[in-house]
Design a protein around this nucleic acid. Structure first.
Lengths: 147, 147
DNA sequence: CAGTTGTTTTTAGTTATTCAAAACAACTCG
DNA sequence: CGAGTTGTTTTGAATAACTAAAAACAACTG
């Protein structure tokens, strides 16, 4: 797919979410469509390569708007800053490396639905369940010192 | 159980974790043994009622030491500050109210173990799984405006 | 009970994030 | 297609939660 075709797809996604199409929004969505699990700072620096005038605050604003619109998802793992990903709509989860903090998607859980029924709901009306696995990634199993 | 008996139990727990027994530590552990899911600020204010000289930084230090020793557990739910609880050793999870942020324990998950096997491990050596349920507590289902 | 080790106090600093006002740009509608 | 309205981005500053460092102090050892 050509670069401008890609651009058009992103613009379409913004428009169908009733969001005004602006350069920072297209850029942020583009960055997150290529690579997920990025923090605001990283998104900012990647956006800055094509749009150097974009401010970090604008990136925070865009990320907030995209999350609200449901175009991206925000995850907030313990002990790290918020991460964003463009993969939405499916109920996938995450594995995070205890050593290098690398995040990978976990497509699904064996026997998903029944497992997500807590035995004791305390009267809560559950709307979603969030699962995070913690462990060592293949690289850090070999050399636990690496970043 | 009398107050000084309770005190002795807490001191014993600290001692068996090879921690020096100090007033702030006993107080923090006491507070968290009574009530869980408290943030550092709340622990601080509760400790301050009996030990007014204790600083917030001391509370952070104590909380860190107790977490490292495995006497308390730290949870970091999305969009709120870190919470601490004295219930450790069992693999329980949490339900959090989307409206009032109240946290309750979820004792276990139906068919627990198999459900926590991700279908795609990405080469990770999993060490733990963390499940957070989000929903509305019984009170907020009736009046969603309440704090 | 003196010494050592480790804890707490006090004072500062950092990081991720949010807020607010003014400048500006996108889409609407004539 | 051009002005107006609405909403976005910039700029500059503030905040909350937490961490760091040095000095004062207290707990356990022998």
């Amino acid at each position: 797919m050509a670069a401008d075709e890609q651009q058009a797809v992103l613009e379409g996604r913004l428009r169908s979410a009733q969001l005004k199409v602006t350069a920072p929004r297209v850029a942020v969505l583009g960055v997150l469509s290529k690579r997920g699990h990025l923090d605001a700072e990283t998104v900012f620096s990647l956006v800055a390569t094509s749009l150097p005038k974009t401010s970090l605050q604008a990136v925070y604003g865009v990320l907030g708007a995209l999350v609200t619109a449901g175009l991206i998802r925000k995850i907030e793992p313990a002990a790290s800053s918020a991460l964003y990903e463009a993969r939405v709509g499916d109920n996938h989860h995450h594995v995070i490396c205890l050593n290098c903090k690398n995040v990978e998607d976990v497509d699904c859980i064996i026997g998903a639905s029944p497992c997500l029924t807590p035995s004791n709901l305390q009267g809560f009306a559950i709307q979603s369940a969030e699962i995070t696995f913690w462990g060592l990634c293949s690289k850090c199993q070999l050399s636990p010192d690496a970043s």
